[in-house]
Structures are given as structure tokens and as C-alpha cells.
Amino acid sequence: MFSSSRFSIDLPVLVGRLRAAGCVFAEDEAELLLAAARTDTELAAMLDRRVEGHPLEHVLGWAEFCGLRITVDPGVFVPRRRTEFLVREALAARPDAAVVVDLCCGSGAVGAALVAALGGAELHAADVEPAAVRCARRNVTGTGGLVHEGDLFAALPGALRGRVDLLAANVPYVPTGEVGLLPAEARVHEPLVALDGGADGLDVLRRVTAGARQWLAPGGCLLFETGERQAAAAVEAVERSGLVPHVATSEELYATVVSGTRPPV
């Protein structure tokens, strides 16, 4: 247990306030806040933000993802633990990938994790949100990766056409009518563009599948998350694009990943 003796706010007080605010893992969060804060003033401010409902990752300034510490700025989509399944599926599909694209990259967590596991690859990440682009640059610069601002494929350098081995697209897939049902941490503090997938949640996904083939290398693979009940429609979109579909699920992480592979010839 982390010692709180250097702060005027002690651990039991922290835990009590966090628990009263509805934080399920109040003890763990209190430990993280104590470890992150440098002064009483900073600890009090962090505690207030968390109690007000800000995501813990925004309060701390980072999230753990695939064993990496990913910088997460306020207003940027927080990488979910279930998305680690997307990374695992991508690595299983193309363990030899030399060119990786992280589309709808948010913080750049997926791209950073893929390149770290691959032992180095050419990485391009892209997002339409300026705040996400700034944050992603902080996370992928050390890998030699580049982050581009713009709408999906329009953001990417044309020289990537036909060269991409792994195209990971963490597209929004919450139906518009269900966005209001999301936890306040998400719907209030994360960008709507990273959550709202249109009427059935698949609007952005269909745009990605429609354009993916021309960017993938022969044998290249597109992967994205979707809801379990959306998987059949997502597979249809993949098939219409001329890619070979595959669906994988993780009961442990409650995650569904749909992929589409460009035929090698």
C-alpha cells in the first residue's frame, strides 16, 4: 500500500470520498492518485476532478494499455482494456507486418502497442480530432511513427496505397440513440465523434470497409471492434468490400473483433 503520510488528505479519506462518488474500485484509485500527486494542492484538485466524474485516466494523464503507459489528455477518447483484444488479433493475423495504420487513433494506443509488439514497423496514425492528434503524437513519436489529422483515409499519405499490412480502425460503433445511455464519464468527457456510430452504429465502419481494399497490401488485414449484435452486418460490409471476413470474440474482455483480409492475389 502506498504511504499517504506526506499528504494532509490520508488514504481513508480519499477512499471514502471516491466510494461516495460511486467509484467501484475506490481503494485502487486512491492509491493511483496518491502515487501521481506531488503536492497537497495537486492531490486535492485531482480528487475533486475524479469526484466530479472525470475519467480516472484524464485525471492521472495516462492509461495502461498492453503493458504501455499511454498519455491521455482531457477530451481524448480513453483506450479501453477490451481493445487489447483487437491488438492481439492483429498480431496473430500479421505477425510479420511492416506497415501499420491506426485509423480513428484517438490517443494512438493501438498503433503504439502494435509497433512495440512487432519490434518496429512503419506506423501511420490518423484522427479527425485535433486534440487526439496532439495526444497521439506524444505517444507514437518515440516509435518513429507519424500522426495525420483528417477524415479517415483522406488523412493518409497517398504513398501508402496498396502497402498497408495491418489497418486497425477503432471506429465508433454506438448507435446514436444509445449514446445517451453511456456512462457520464464517456458521454460528457470524451468526444462525440469517437462514440457515435450513426443510426445503427455502423456508419463509420461502412466508410472504412468501403475504402480499405485499395490501401491494403495483398494479404493485408483490416480489423475493427464492433458490438456482438452488429457483427453480422459488419461481416456483410467486409464482404462487399472484397475482403475475406473473420469474427473473433473474447468472453473475458467482452469484445468482438471483425477482420477483413485482402486476398494475396
Results as ranks from 00 to 15, higher is better:
Glu122Leu: 08
Leu18Ala: 00
Glu52Pro: 02
Ala92Glu: 14
Arg19Leu: 10
Pro157Ile: 07
Glu57Asp: 11
Ser5Ala: 15
Gly120Arg: 04
Leu216Ile: 00
Arg6Leu: 04
Leu91Ser: 10
Glu251Trp: 10
Val171Arg: 00
Leu243Thr: 00
Arg138Leu: 12
Leu216Pro: 00
Val140Thr: 14
Gly67Thr: 09
Val257Ile: 15
Ala37Pro: 13
Leu123Ser: 08
Gly61Asn: 07
Val193Ser: 15
Cys135Asp: 10
Ala232Tyr: 03
Ala36His: 05
His54Glu: 15
Gly145Phe: 07
Ala154Ile: 03
Arg163Met: 01
Met1Gln: 06
Glu122Phe: 01
Glu239Lys: 15
Arg206Trp: 06
Val99Pro: 05
Gly198Tyr: 15
Arg161Met: 14
Leu56Ile: 01
Pro191Glu: 14
Ala90Asn: 03
Arg137Lys: 15
Glu185Asn: 04
Trp215Ile: 00
His148Met: 05
Ala194Ile: 01
Val247Met: 05
Leu56Cys: 03
Leu156His: 09
Asp96Met: 08
Glu251Ile: 08
Val15Asn: 04
Glu129Gln: 10
Leu60His: 07
Ala232His: 14
Pro95Gly: 07
Ile70Gln: 11
Leu223Pro: 02
Gly145Cys: 03
Tyr254Thr: 13
Val164Thr: 04
Val244Glu: 15
Gly111Ala: 06
Val265Lys: 12
Arg206Gln: 12
Leu192Val: 09
Glu228Cys: 13
Val174Asp: 07
Cys135Gln: 08
Val128His: 06
Leu33Ile: 02
Ala35Asn: 02
Ala35Cys: 05
Gln230Ser: 03
Thr41Gln: 12
Leu68Arg: 15
Arg80Ala: 12
Ile70Tyr: 12
Ala217Tyr: 00
Val128Ile: 12
Ala126Arg: 06
Leu192Gln: 15
Arg206Tyr: 08
Glu89Leu: 12
Gly22Ala: 06
Arg161Asn: 14
Val235Pro: 03
Gly158Arg: 11
Leu68Cys: 09
Ser4Arg: 02
Leu33Gly: 01
Arg240Tyr: 09
Glu228Met: 13
Gln214Glu: 10
Ala125Glu: 06
Val208Asp: 09
Leu253Tyr: 13
Glu57Arg: 04
Val235Tyr: 04
Ala63His: 08
Pro157Arg: 03
Phe65Cys: 11
Arg138Asp: 08
Gly211Trp: 09
Arg94Met: 04
Leu146Phe: 08
Leu222Glu: 00
His148Ile: 03
Gly242Trp: 02
Cys135Trp: 10
His58Val: 09
Asp40Pro: 02
Arg80Met: 05
Ala217Val: 00
Thr141Asn: 06
Thr83Leu: 06
Val147Gln: 05
Leu18Val: 01
His189Asp: 04
Ile70Arg: 10
Cys105Glu: 00
Asp40Thr: 03
Val247Ile: 14
Leu86His: 11
Leu182Cys: 11
Gly120Val: 10
Ala155Met: 07
Ala217Cys: 01
Gly220Arg: 02
Arg206Ser: 15
Asp73Arg: 14
Ala37Asp: 07
Ala113Val: 09
Gly75Leu: 08
Val238Ala: 03
